[in-house]
Design a protein around this nucleic acid. Structure first.
Length: 578
DNA sequence: GCCGTTTTCGGCCCGACTGTTTTCAGTCG
């Protein structure tokens, strides 16, 4: 898989081309940036695409034309890329490393190289230590300090943060602004609103007549570590949690346009703005304007999109994956919502296990979350670190479940289940009699992650074909940020799931979100259902459901594809069909 | 360098903020 290497090369080419004075160069820069983004975010390897369909197949990818496809072909076949090497000779510096420092761009990086021989992070550190940077032309004390701070920051943080860590902080800041009485409205925009699995920064928007006071409140919040910028319409701070946060204060008549603009994504916005131009409008973050430059007031995003001849789209879908065209044709189906969720098909909890809450507490929490049923699915004996249970223990445990169900009848129903380990050879970690006694079985891989793709695929397909599992738990096994997905042929797994009526899980734990959005899109081609599960080990974890639903929405799943969007009667019928 | 209901040429987003300027360049989003 060469995607990351090639994507990085294109990103570096873009940086180096940004130094080019030719007027057309800046468009080339954008072309290479876009290509880098496309390739960097793809699931399939460019080398596979090239092997299957040659240069023509590469040119099917968005932002990849004849020239860039040629460069990819050249790299795959020869291991070299002439354009990259030519530019690299002109600028023999670690452009990617240096420009990843906040406040240091390509031009300043080259200026540092020419004046002080800075070519990478270590030589930059030396230059900083000698205090020569502030004396250079075009630099000053403040730029030196900014580079210093930027470097510190880079070394302390890897950049993006889990949505589950970032979103609650953003929502707390919004609440603080609202509680102050200084703002009329405030909301979280950006990638957090789109429920991306990780976010690089937070964007908050507010309507207020008292911008200076709002900015003062914002920049002096206890969450703030340091001030990056403060102005009348925009301020930016570094938060103690290690994330930058922007606040924009906007007048009321431009709010819906600002919300649309700052929710993005970038590519989605480019498409929407192109449509607005065709309709004779101009759309920017300040509003929708007619040809004479007069603002066309819009009260909501719905109204704004309607003016452009489009359906409103949920933020999670605004990733330029075809939603714009469908919205123009009014053919967009609205995805599942948190309110549609009636149950949870993967939870843990028992009295004897100190790493979880007891079943009664879990049932209480499930009721508080508004659920009508949930499956209690404890780990099985092989998973010793999680206190996995054996057949006898399940038998005893289920008697407790029966008793509790009797007591809670009419309020909530607990389904008897297990998260059974799919062992290395694809067999299951409990005997058939025990598995048959259950309402719902989650099958999951928790060991031997390093098997080759073919072996792992066979292992999982064998488990699905056993006929004993109802859902494949966290199907790719990734855990952000440290554990990558195991190698797996998802198509073969989905085919097996389809013929066995096995669902695919969307595990809602913030570090998992597995399947992820792009895998969901691939998997949804098959006639299978999905289960959005909190995988709660303790009562607060039921709240993870929103991240799973957000991920399902990013994968365009409608309510009818979700197992646990069924009511209790419906799901009981579904379970009897086994 | 990419792309196409503006279709094989001629567009491609541009404003806010900062710092080092003395009217603007660099960076960011």
């Amino acid at each position: 898989m060469d995607n990351k290497i090639i994507s990085d090369m294109f990103a570096e080419i873009a940086s180096m081309l940004s130094l080019d004075e030719r007027p057309t160069a800046r468009f080339e820069v954008r072309a290479y940036q876009k290509a880098a983004l496309t390739i960097g975010s793809m699931q399939e390897g460019v080398d596979d695409i090239y092997r299957k369909g040659g240069k023509a197949a590469l040119m099917e990818l968005p932002g990849i034309g004849k020239g860039i496809a040629g460069s990819i072909e050249e790299y795959i076949t020869t291991g070299h890329m002439e354009k990259y090497e030519y530019l690299k000779k002109m600028y023999p510096i670690d452009m990617k490393g240096l420009t990843s420092i906040q406040g240091l761009g390509a031009r300043k990086a080259v200026a540092l190289y020419k004046a002080l021989g800075v070519k990478d992070i270590p030589t930059l550190k030396k230059a900083l230590a000698s205090h020569k940077i502030g004396k250079l032309e075009g630099f000053g004390e403040k730029s030196e300090e900014m580079i210093h701070k930027g470097l510190d920051l880079l070394q302390r943080s890897s950049g993006r943060m889990l949505l589950g860590d970032a979103l609650p902080v953003a929502e707390a800041i919004v609440q603080r602004l609202k509680d102050s009485g200084l703002v009329d409205r405030a909301l979280v925009a950006g990638s957090a609103r789109r429920m991306r699995e990780t976010v690089g920064d937070l964007d908050i928007l507010a309507i207020s007549e008292k911008a200076p006071k709002v900015m003062e409140l914002f920049t002096k919040m206890p969450e703030v570590e340091s001030l990056i910028a403060e102005g009348p319409t925009r301020s930016a701070v570094r938060l103690k949690i290690g994330l930058n946060c922007d606040l924009r204060v906007i007048p009321e008549d431009g709010f819906s346009a600002a919300v649309q603009y700052f929710t993005g994504s970038k590519d989605h916005n480019v498409q929407v703005r192109t449509i607005s131009v065709r309709k004779g409008y101009k759309l920017n973050e300040y509003g929708l304007f007619n040809k004479k430059g007069k603002i066309i007031p819009t009260k909501s995003e719905e109204e704004l999109y309607a003016k452009l001849g489009m359906q409103w789209m949920p933020p999670e879908m605004r990733e330029a994956r075809g939603e714009v065209k469908l919205a123009q044709e009014s053919a967009l189906k609205m995805p599942v919502e948190l309110g549609d969720i009636k149950g949870d098909m993967h939870t843990h909890g028992r009295d004897s296990d100190p790493s979880t809450d007891p079943l009664e507490k879990m049932a209480d929490a499930a009721m508080t979350s508004g659920l009508k049923y949930f499956a209690s699915t404890n780990h099985t004996k092989s998973l010793k670190v999680e206190n996995g249970m054996n057949e006898k223990q399940f038998e005893l445990f289920f008697k407790k479940v029966d008793a509790l169900n009797k007591r809670l009848y009419g309020k909530i129903r607990i389904l008897k289940g297990a998260e059974v380990d799919i062992l290395k050879d694809g067999s299951l970690d409990l005997d058939q009699k025990c598995l048959k006694s259950m309402d719902w079985v989650v099958g999951s891989v928790h060991s031997a992650f390093n098997q080759p793709e073919e072996e792992m695929t066979k292992r999982i397909v064998k488990a699905i074909d056993s006929g004993f599992i109802d859902v494949l738990g966290h199907p790719t096994g990734r855990e952000m940020p440290s554990r990558d997905a195991y190698r797996l042929d998802l198509d073969k797994v989905c085919e097996a799931a389809e013929r066995n009526r096995v669902a695919m899980e969307i595990n809602a734990q913030p570090k998992r979100l597995d399947l992820n959005d792009t895998n969901i899109i691939s998997a949804s081609k098959y006639k299978i259902k999905f289960a959005i599960d909190s995988d709660a080990h303790r009562t607060p974890h039921f709240a993870y459901m929103r991240y799973g639903v957000g991920t399902a929405r990013r994968g365009w799943l409608t309510k009818d594809r979700i197992v646990n969007a069924m009511g209790l009667k419906e799901i009981s019928k579904y379970l009897e069909m086994d």
